[in-house]
């Protein structure tokens, strides 16, 4: 087992209900949760692979393959719709091309100042218009 993965499992030895914290750490460390990771986690926690897969597949946050490119989360929930996010989507997709992936998110808690988005680093941006959004997309690497 890789040392980093072993570390993660060890860190959560005393944790009650450790699976989600472990999966978060694995994804933060490796960028995704691979089949290999799932097997090792199952062995480490003495649960079946099916249980781990069940959890990984349930939650929107976990990916089983590398993202391969920066992901910008653009809020598409009601309050951001009311502030015009839908009109920005097409232009954003165009600006993103194959370089950036735009993923929907349902609310970032910035609903008085939408349209809002979050970068892979967790930086948040509000009051987006097409110019600011395209600029933001261009700045991602």
């Amino acid at each position: 087992m890789s040392e980093a993965l072993e570390d993660i499992l060890k860190r959560h030895e005393l944790c009650e209900g450790p699976l989600l914290p472990i999966l978060h750490d694995v994804q933060n460390t490796f960028g995704y949760v691979s089949d290999y990771h799932m097997r090792m986690i199952a062995a480490g926690l003495n649960i079946t692979r099916a249980e781990v897969w069940g959890v990984v597949s349930f939650y929107h946050d976990f990916r089983t393959e590398p993202a391969g490119k920066p992901v910008l989360k653009l809020c598409r929930a009601e309050a951001c719709k009311a502030r015009g996010v839908e009109a920005l989507v097409e232009g954003a997709e165009k600006a993103a091309g194959s370089r950036v992936r735009i993923e929907p998110v349902y609310c970032l808690g910035l609903c008085s100042g939408g349209p809002a988005a979050m970068t892979p680093q967790g930086d948040v941006h509000a009051r987006l218009d097409s110019e600011k959004l395209n600029q933001l997309i261009g700045s991602l690497s």
Partner: peptide, 21 residues
Amino acid sequence: RVGAGSYVCGEETALLNSLEG
């Protein structure tokens, strides 16, 4: 504890399941 992008986990019993892993 940190959620993982699921709205329904705000429902209290789903949240408890999520906390349990």
